[in-house]
Amino acid sequence: MVLSCKNVRKTFGEHVILDDLSLDVDEHEVVALIGASGSGKSTLLRCVNLLEQVDDGTIHLDGDEITDPRADPDRVRQKIGLVFQSYNLFPHMTVLDNITLAPVRVHKKSPAEAKAQAMQWLERVGLAAKAGAYPDRLSGGQQQRVAIVRALVNQPRLLLLDEVTSALDPELVGEVLTMIRDLKGDGTTMVLATHEMGFARQVADRVAFLDGGRVLEQGPPSQVLGDPVEARTRQFLARIIEAGRL
């Protein structure tokens, strides 16, 4: 098991965001988190990456407890890739520098090696020509693909994707989703928070529906999205269908 969250609780002041949440992710598994805005999808991903501290419960990565205050957050994050909704590329660096920053500074690779590896990735996702460009010269879809590459070059054990297509124009969503589909083919272990139900159905091995800060229902996409057990899940999906997103 790569990731194991047990009884995780997270509050912001009075707001209980995660409430006794448990979720396991196996190696090579792709888990899609769905649920309304504010259901805790992003917060869970940020807790896993230690950008937020959990109030209670434990999170294990490869069997090691990462919520132990004695664990070094920098070491933990080196094993986890996180991609944000708003890309968060570094605007003062070229695409290539964005990608090679962590390999050179954190993983102590030689600049030449890091560059070669980055170029390989850029070739693969069709962005080699943009290596020397600054992020503001790229479309949203291109920026997001660079952000995914930036997370992947560190060969993380786990890739977290936080609504990575939500900020994109509809016609740019496809290129990012295609890339994620390819990553699944590579066997990358992924947890993705998403509003793209159609995509979750195609790419996820398991869909987890978050409601009220816990996993209310989880299972194969066909079951959770097609024949949900819980009334809340049905309600949520009905609203999604109404909005024309499924």
Binding site: R77, P91, A102, H107, N154
Partner: peptide, 24 residues
């Protein structure tokens, strides 16, 4: 979010300051 992005890549506080925050 820039700091979050840098930290999520495994950069420490100093590295984040030096390579991401201060140049901007």
């Amino acid at each position: 979010s820039q700091i979050a992005a840098a930290r999520s890549l495994g950069l420490g506080y100093r590295q984040t300051m030096r390579h991401v925050v201060l140049p901007q």
